[in-house]
């Protein structure tokens, strides 16, 4: 069976790949484009470690076929820091030790950024519910929620 020629935009760069029809976006990002920041924790949309945005919409890249992204815009954790400067969320996660093992961190960062783009001043409850699809087994979420709230405050001030 012949592969499909995929042309899409990832973190602002035009990229091309030859993909199988049933390959997921996550597999293509990780295995073909060498963008391994998105992780596979479950493969069923239950852990959020593979979170990316697709045309600005937060999705699990394990539940998107790569061919669906033809001509669309994908953003991953690798695109968050700009010009050598960390995104305020990345900086806050570091300052507040909002990560332990770090496997869920890219997903949380991408999801939190999507939240703050929609809602720059979320309550703690809104943060917790928005991030309910991102599992973290290490932290108990406490420091993650604080980091998101603090980053939001800083971004509102900036």
């Amino acid at each position: 069976m012949s592969k499909i020629h995929l042309t899409t935009t990832v973190n602002g760069d035009a990229v091309e790949a030859l993909v199988e029809a049933d390959e997921t976006l996550l597999d293509v990002l990780r295995n073909q484009l060498a963008l391994t920041g998105a992780k596979e924790g479950c493969g069923s949309g239950d852990c959020g470690a593979c979170s990316v945005t697709l045309d600005g919409r937060l999705v699990c890249s394990c539940l998107v076929l790569a061919v669906e992204t033809q001509g669309r815009r994908v953003e991953t954790v690798e695109g968050m820091a700009k010009g050598g400067v960390l995104h305020p969320l990345q900086q806050k996660f570091l300052e507040l030790s909002a990560l332990q093992c770090g496997i869920c961190t890219p997903g949380f960062l991408v999801a939190a950024r999507a939240l703050l783009e929609k809602n720059p001043d979320p309550t703690e409850t809104e943060v917790r519910y928005w991030l309910a699809g991102n599992l973290c087994r290490c932290t108990g979420y406490d420091k993650i929620v604080r980091a998101v709230m603090d980053a939001a405050a800083e971004m509102r001030g900036a």
């Binding site: 949309g45 919409r57 937060l58 699990c60 539940l63 999801a111 999507a114 939240l115 309910a132």
Partner: peptide, 9 residues
């Protein structure tokens, strides 16, 4: 239905 991520789809 599912998470924020799932609701996006």
């Amino acid at each position: 239905i599912g998470s924020t991520q799932v609701q996006g789809r």
